[in-house]
């Protein structure tokens, strides 16, 4: 058991059934879940997609800042976005964004008090997964068609 100066750590020491102490995790953390369950997997995916999208905001800022800076800066930005590095990054942001939006709507549904039973939870979970795939592909079909024409 590691020494800690944080008083709250006192509440985070538990005992196993054989009496030995165990350090409890902080918030519900990855290691306390069975990741084969859809419920916990989608929950942490919501957090991961939100964090990834936060990083992806840099590309939004670059886009508007380059547009304001002028044609040359915009050309450099567009060159990166359309490159073999830029396209996979933008595709990843698109997928993370759609997942976060759809899973967020699922969370709002829970906040309004609906859909807590297990069958509904799994059904809405699959809707979020399928919806993410559909919306990501749809967004890129629109982009690729626009790009090609």
């Amino acid at each position: 058991m590691a020494h800690s100066n944080d008083a709250r750590e006192a509440l985070m020491i538990g005992r196993r059934t054989d009496g030995t102490t165990v350090r409890r995790p902080l918030s519900p953390h990855l290691q306390v879940y069975d990741m084969l369950q859809m419920t916990s997997a989608l929950s942490i995916m919501h957090r991961i997609s939100g964090a990834a999208w936060s990083v992806g905001l840099i590309f939004f800022v670059w886009w508007v800042a380059a547009a304001a800076a002028g044609p040359e800066a915009y050309g450099r930005m567009a060159g990166f976005m359309g490159s073999f590095i830029g396209v996979p990054i933008l595709f990843g942001i698109t997928a993370a964004a759609w997942y976060h939006i759809l899973a967020g709507i699922r969370h709002l549904m829970w906040d309004f008090g609906y859909g807590y039973d297990i069958p509904t939870t799994y059904r809405t979970g699959w809707i979020v997964i399928a919806g993410t795939a559909v919306m990501t592909v749809l967004t890129w079909i629109v982009a690729i068609v626009a790009w090609a024409s």
Binding site: A67, A68, G70, P71, Y74, G75, A78, G82, T94, A97, I101, G104, I105, H107, L108, T139, W140, V142, A143, I144, A146, W147
Partner: peptide
């Protein structure tokens, strides 16, 4: 989150439909 949902859907498709447009059009 409620405010961002329609805004993001508008933004995503507004940008996607203009993919590859030059600076003059986007600015």
């Amino acid at each position: 989150s409620i405010a961002l949902t329609p805004l993001m859907i508008w933004f995503a498709f507004s940008i996607a439909i203009r993919a590859g447009e030059p600076w003059e059009v986007m600015a």
